[in-house]
Amino acid sequence: MTIVWAGLSVGAVYALTAIGYNITMTFGGVFNFAHGAFVILSAFFSWFVTVDLGWPWWTGALLGAALGALLATVEELVAVRPVLRRTDTRALLVTTVGAFVVIEGMLGATWGATPKSMEFFGGSEPLTLLGGHMFPVDVWLIGVAIAAGVSLHLFTQRSLWGLAARGATSDPDAAKTRGINVGALRTAGFALAGALAGLLGPLVTPKTGASVSIAVSMTIFGFVALAVGGFGSFLGCVVGGLAIGLIQAYGLRYLGVEYPPVLLFLVLLAVLLLKPTGLLGKRGVRAV
């Protein structure tokens, strides 16, 4: 059972990353390759505020949210908006990868390659639940991931904002003629995703540590969670994330430390070949 909790909690981190991707996709119609870097940025920032400066954890969360929103907005304005007007999508791939690298490079240059760790604000005493050991941070992570997924799902399905967003991403021109400010919605989506990443810093960092070397795996596993769960579905992000977390934990325990990435790669291939829209996705991110 301990393995299950370990898997679910790391899966929750992937689910939250996937949710970040899904926010920009749902509100802006754009896949923000740099989001994984935002998660790592918030990890370093919350470490910096809480451990280096010694301020309370919630200041780390709030300041992180503000920083994340600000930087994400800058990214959208500089690297995404000017490029979306072009007919070929190539440039967008290049600029968002560039944004990822800029953030990752600055983090590395500022704080170096040694991983940093921080304590969880809710305590570090292990607890026992259903026969398995886990830490308070794990309980919080799983709970927050599910809450975030469900609330965003309800928001996009039921609220007027959500409806506007779905209209804007499926047919931007039609949405514009209905008075929806497609560009502002997209910028808001980026800001929201950045803010979410920043806000969750004090929650995620005690679990993952702050280090540049996990930026790549965070980016990729977040994508795998999104692909498995279904593009466009917030509930899918949660399901997908938790599922791959479990696969990773079991692979780690029974096969060894080098196997989880290979396992997850095979899972990704299987999903993309057999059910490209993912478990819960309706509209795939189809090009043809």
């Binding site: 980016t219 990729i220 080098e258 993309l272 490209p276 189809r286 090009a287």
Partner: peptide, 29 residues
Amino acid sequence: GVPGLRLSHWSLALVSFFFVLLIPSLVSI
């Protein structure tokens, strides 16, 4: 290439990006 090609350019980019992550794992295995 094949799994991602029917989907958007992003899917293919990320599947290929995954390979970068697999290098240390495969080298170890």
